[in-house]
């Protein structure tokens, strides 16, 4: 199979569903932002209990994180009206690629080659999902 043959269906799907892809990217951005807000307020030494989690979530940044997560989930719901969850849910894995990219932007940021290989695999998997098509219900 020629190299371009692999990408042709991906390009076609990307062009046909541009609006949906933008909506999914926005959803992912909201969910990742929510996670980053929670990372700022959750201490590593925290003992997990309902009270300690509630105390963390009631801090301003915790509430903001919850808001981002809720907004992301509402947009996610709209995405699922017409599109299959089995197509989009595995793409949540792209969130780890975004997090890795953000950690690389830090002043002391360094990316392990094995992590870069992981990024390549995630992108390959996403490409396979798009080649599989059938995103519409």
């Amino acid at each position: 199979m020629a190299f371009t043959d692999y990408f042709a269906p991906i390009k076609r799907v990307s062009q046909q569903h541009r609006g949906v892809i933008i909506m999914f990217n926005t959803t992912l951005a909201l969910l990742v932002t929510g996670e980053l807000c929670l990372r700022e307020v959750v201490p590593a030494s925290m003992v997990l209990s309902v009270d300690s989690v509630a105390a963390v979530l009631l801090q301003p940044l915790g509430l903001l994180g919850l808001g981002f997560l809720l907004a992301g989930l509402l947009m996610w719901s709209v995405l699922l009206v017409r599109h299959q969850i089995s197509f989009f849910y595995p793409l949540w894995g792209l969130g780890s690629v975004v997090l890795l990219g953000l950690s690389w932007l830090r002043p002391s940021g360094w990316v392990d080659p094995k992590a870069l290989f992981g990024v390549l695999l995630v992108l390959l998997g996403a490409g396979l999902l798009m080649r599989g098509g059938h995103s519409r219900s």
Binding site: P90, G93, S96, V97, A115, F117, G118, G125, L128, L129
Partner: peptide, 14 residues
């Protein structure tokens, strides 16, 4: 296969 490859890639990243 796409989902399985994404899982392996995510674990490598993490």
């Amino acid at each position: 296969f796409g989902a399985i490859i994404i899982v392996i890639g995510t674990l490598l990243i993490i």
